[in-house]
Write a protein that binds this DNA or RNA. Sequence first.
DNA 1: TACATGATGCCCT
DNA 2: GGGCATCATGTAG
Length: 220
Amino acid sequence: MKLLSADFFNRDPRRVARALLGKLLIRKTPRGILAGRIVETEAYLGKGDEAAHATAGKTARNFVLFGPPGFAYVYFIYGNYYCLNVSCLPDGVPGCVLFRALEPVAGIEQMARARGISLSEIDFRAPVLRDPEPPQPVDRKKLAGLRKISSGPGRMCEAFGITRARDNDKSLVSARSDLQIVDDGYRVRRVLVGPRIGITKSAAHPLRYLIGGNPFVSRP
DNA sequence: TACATGATGCCCT
DNA sequence: GGGCATCATGTAG
């Protein structure tokens, strides 16, 4: 398990978004460790990316995007949900990667509770993906309960208890942080690229990255 | 299975 | 006051 460093995030968000696929997002809680494999990300750039929050310049809401790399930018959306990003590029240069979906790896019962999902909905014998993907054809019905935990940016934040008050402007690269990203050696075989989800401006750019064949993405 | 819709609150103009 | 990097639920097919 190797903690990702600030250097990892100190580069173009498009390269970070791709490199984050297959890494583990970790949350240390009093009740145990939560972990999910990153299977879907989106890059948001600085000037020129009309869909990025940084496009309007630095504000009280988005200041983290303009800070040093490796910090959590958490924002509240649609009156109900939070979304987690990590800042990229050097101090003063905006850019980030949005975490869109995780494959549940550890702390599944705690995450299900946080999401309001009954444990009876989850088939713990379902084939959770292991290195290398993709496995034999997946029975999506058996994965339905697991998929509800973190297959979407709002869902994964709820599962991890991520909120703006708790986590915005928090370092993800500090050994003391309760929110980290680690490399466990998992090798991603195939990366797919496509247009970002849920935006209207600058919608055509292929800035969404996902692990090919992984059933835990928000959508194929 | 696919699509449309309502809920909901904060930020920025 | 408008718009939003979403989700769960309902209806139609």
